[in-house]
Amino acid sequence: MSRPPKARNKALLAYCELLRRDGERATTIDAVAARAELSKGGVLYHFPSKEALAEAALEEFRLSCEQDLASMAEAAEGPARHYVRTSWTSGSDLDTYYIAMLRLAQSSWQPAVEALEWVHQAWLELIQEEVGDRYAAEAIMLIGEGLYHHSSMPGEWSRGTFARSVEHLLELVDHLKRS
């Protein structure tokens, strides 16, 4: 049996889950402690403020992005197809921290805005390097973003319709790469 996550990780994941579900204003230290099943003092031991929680989430986001960019650059199928194929995946560490950064950016936290701009630009550059055309690269990114958006929506329509069409969308990616 695996060991339960350490208190720091539990608090950080609880923070991200609360950001996703309730937004930045409702994500208080007390709420994080309750969600993580820790005492408030236990959370404050690792994160003396909400800002410290946000900074830790930002660091984890950057690490997850660097791993994703490396995987994307090394993917045998190429960065464009890899981007679209993995856009459908939710529940990963990258997804957890990406949503946290989106919610923090929506509340005007500038480091989150800058981190999101950085990773979107890095994804675009990898795809553009492969396909050779900025507009084709942007279209490929929009395909991936649409898949990501729909994968997070409730209901069968999103999962069923797009799950069946990912391979067709990858054929469209191949077409855009040749254009």
Score class of each variant (00 low, 15 high):
Gly155Leu: 03
Val173Gly: 04
Val43Trp: 01
Trp109Asn: 01
Tyr15Val: 01
Ala52Thr: 04
Gly42Ile: 04
Ala14Trp: 04
Ala54Ile: 09
Ser92Tyr: 09
Glu156Tyr: 13
Arg164Gly: 01
Ala73Lys: 05
Gln110Met: 14
Ala73Trp: 01
Met72Phe: 10
Leu104His: 09
Arg21Gly: 00
Ala112Thr: 07
Gln121Ser: 13
His168Lys: 06
Ala57Phe: 15
Arg8Cys: 07
Ala7Leu: 05
Ala100Gly: 01
Thr161Ala: 08
Met72Arg: 08
Ser108Phe: 14
Glu17Ala: 10
Gln106Asn: 13
Ala33Ile: 05
Trp109Val: 04
Thr86Glu: 12
Glu60Trp: 11
Arg134Ile: 10
Pro154Cys: 00
Tyr45Gly: 09
Asp93His: 13
Ala122Ser: 11
Glu125Ala: 14
Ala33Asn: 04
Thr89Gln: 12
Glu130Lys: 06
Gly41Ile: 08
Val166Leu: 14
Leu170Pro: 04
Ser151Asp: 09
Asp133Val: 05
Tyr15Ser: 02
Asp22Ala: 09
Arg159Gly: 09
Gln106Met: 14
Ser87Gln: 08
Glu51Gly: 06
Thr161Ser: 01
Glu114Met: 12
Glu130Met: 02
Thr89Phe: 06
Lys40Ser: 12
Pro79Phe: 01
Ala36Val: 09
Ser179Lys: 10
Cys65Trp: 07
Arg8Met: 03
Arg85Asn: 01
Met153Lys: 09
Ile99Gln: 06
Cys65Glu: 11
Ala73Ile: 04
Val173Ala: 06
Glu130Ala: 12
Leu94Cys: 00
Arg159Pro: 01
Ser92Ile: 02
Leu176Asp: 06
Glu66Ile: 04
Arg8Trp: 03
Leu170Met: 05
Val43Ala: 00
Ile127Val: 15
Glu17His: 07
Phe47Cys: 00
Val173Ile: 04
Trp157Arg: 13
Ser158Leu: 05
Gly23Ile: 11
Glu117His: 13
Ala34Trp: 01
Ala34Leu: 10
Leu126Asn: 15
Leu44Trp: 00
Ser107Trp: 14
Ser165Glu: 08
Ser158Lys: 00
Arg164Met: 10
His82Glu: 09
Arg134Thr: 07
Gly132Met: 03
Ala136Glu: 07
His46Ser: 15
Arg35Asn: 07
Trp123Asn: 15
Leu63Ile: 14
Ser2Met: 05
Ala33Tyr: 01
Lys10Met: 09
Glu51His: 10
Val32Glu: 07
Leu13Arg: 15
Gly146Asn: 10
